[in-house]
């Protein structure tokens, strides 16, 4: 292991791919890793996949990582990695850890990252600081680096650090840290295949019912149009979906809307459900229960549309419209359609 307090730091980034391409959070993780190791340190990345069309996609992802500051990108391409079997993926990261001997390992706080990081941390007898929203290296890297993360879904924030000597694993929340910038031409890193033998396989993937293509994941969405009890029915989400389609956003919901059966729990935003930090959050017919506010009040700009002028949501909204969402939302969709020159569909 490289020294965690002083001297040269080495980081390993698990660069997650989805649908054959690198996720933005992978570049955010790479940016965090570069910041943490500083100028004298080095950053390695590992990309993982398998199956018929994986090889070309992995090479494209690896080239992008190498162009953005990964000194070496380790490529693991194996049939065992075609579907997400956590034990197979954790073993691929383990192979990279053995090759690189990093002092810090960085993953995205995504569905996959959240499943892998705790296993990796336990395997290296290290600490895991999860869901990091800010990284401060003013006092130095290693054990001096300070990580900010939300508690109670954002009702409070804590700063944590690793104790000296402990191997470090962090997961970074999508949409919060800057992506790694490209390095000067000529200083790109290298790409190398990493030897891997699959562990005993514990997971048979029987079936995947994919989400509608093009649907944007809530955690990574720049814009979220969210509905509450005020949408009144499952059909009531239609104008919200239309607005989201025109502005290129995702649709979310409050617990009230989910509990009432208007939409799937996978859309729920709040302390139970997902915590989101988009650039723009448009709350439609959401009163603003404290557990919902916890999940969205770190959004950069908040818009509230609600009939009740006393609704708590207006207390956190930058712009509020007291009115009927079924009247206002379609008008807003028209405005954006004209503004963006986007026919929407």
């Amino acid at each position: 292991m490289s020294d965690t307090n002083t001297g040269k730091q080495t980081a390993l980034v698990y660069a997650e791919c989805a649908e054959g391409s690198l996720r933005r959070v992978a570049l955010e993780a790479l940016g965090a890793a570069r910041l943490l190791v500083g100028d004298g340190g080095s950053v390695h990345a590992v990309v993982v996949g398998g199956g018929a069309s994986a090889a070309a996609a992995l090479q494209t992802a690896a080239a992008e990582l190498a162009a953005r500051g990964a000194e070496v990108v380790h490529v693991v391409d194996d049939p065992a990695l075609a579907g997400f079997a956590p034990e197979a993926y954790a073993a691929a990261i383990g192979a990279a850890v053995a090759a690189v001997q990093p002092s810090i390992i960085v993953l995205g706080h995504t569905a996959a990252g959240r499943e892998l990081a705790p296993r990796v941390a336990a395997a290296v007898s290290g600490g895991h600081i999860a869901d990091v929203t800010a990284v401060d290296v003013a006092a130095g890297g290693g054990a001096a680096a300070i990580f900010t993360r939300p508690l109670y879904a954002g009702k409070a924030f804590e700063q944590r650090r690793f104790l000296p000597g402990a191997p470090q694993v962090i997961t970074v929340r999508p949409n919060n840290l800057p992506v790694a910038e490209p390095v000067a031409p000529g200083s790109e890193g290298t790409v190398a295949a990493l030897a891997y033998s699959a562990p005993p396989l514990w997971t048979i993937v029987r079936d995947v019912v994919r989400k509608a293509s093009g649907r944007i994941d809530l955690a990574e969405a720049d814009i979220i149009v969210s509905g509450g009890r005020g949408v009144r029915s499952a059909d009531g989400f239609a104008p919200l979906e239309e607005l989201a389609a025109v502005v290129g956003g995702a649709v979310g919901a409050s617990r009230g809307a989910c509990d009432a059966g208007y939409c799937d729990y996978s859309l729920q935003i709040g302390q139970t459900g997902k915590t989101v930090t988009p650039k723009l959050y448009i709350a439609c017919g959401i009163s603003g229960a404290i557990q919902h506010l916890a999940g969205m009040s770190q959004s950069r700009v908040i818009v509230a549309i609600n009939k009740d002028p006393e609704a708590p949501i207006f207390g956190v909204a930058d712009y509020g419209i007291v009115g009927d969402l079924f009247e206002v939302v379609p008008l807003l969709t028209e405005q954006f359609r004209a503004l963006l020159g986007n026919p929407g569909s």
Binding site: G127, L151, A156, F157, Q159, L163, P167, I302, P309, V328
Partner: peptide
Amino acid sequence: PRTERVALQGPPVRAAGRKLAGTPQEQA
């Protein structure tokens, strides 16, 4: 333990913004 807390804070305070007046068309 492998990690420790350095500090705990409340979330950044968000001031309420403004409510937009007018007809729904004007508000939008």
